[in-house]
């Protein structure tokens, strides 16, 4: 029972000790409770004093901010990259439209060409259709794999 009580009071002290270090007490009662611990248990006082020293040391150590010029470029780079990604989407959409239209016109011209044998027309269309289906199948597989890949966030 005593050991359990000691464990509880140590856990309570740990919390109060953090609050004391970070000035996060919620009430005066907590401050009094903490002071009581420090007064009664010398090991707790030693622990608190050592934490305080570490806290003071980290307080004196600052991360220095890069200069203002860097921040201006920083924001500009972000905005440029966002704009570029939108431009890429538009560009790729444009390419898809051109390719689809070009493909349609090419097949139309092939079908209307009377100088090419029917068997050759069928061969060309079958080759192109097969190639297209293969490409779509590979893209579909890649997308499915990517969606279910638990490591997709890891940059290689």
């Amino acid at each position: 029972m005593n050991a359990m009580q000691n464990k509880i009071s140590k856990e309570r002290f740990n919390i109060l000790c953090m609050k004391a270090l970070d000035n996060e007490f919620n009430s005066d009662n907590e401050i009094l409770e903490f002071q009581e611990y420090i007064k009664k248990i010398p090991e707790f006082k030693i622990e608190y004093e050592e934490f305080k020293r570490i806290k003071e040391l980290t307080k004196k150590m600052n991360l220095r901010s890069p200069n203002d010029d860097i921040w201006k470029v920083y924001r500009m780079k972000i905005m440029n990259r966002i704009e570029r990604s939108i431009a890429w989407i538009i560009f790729l959409a444009g390419c898809a439209i051109i390719l689809a239209f070009g493909g349609y016109k090419a097949i139309e011209a092939l079908l209307n060409n009377t100088r090419i044998d029917l068997i050759l027309k069928i061969g060309i269309i079958a080759t192109l259709s097969g190639g297209l289906f293969l490409l779509l199948s590979v893209i579909k597989e890649k997308i499915t794999l990517w969606k279910s890949d638990p490591y997709k966030g890891i940059e290689k």
Partner: peptide
């Protein structure tokens, strides 16, 4: 480097 971390 000290350029990045400073001690008050």
């Amino acid at each position: 480097g000290e350029e990045i971390i400073e001690m008050i």
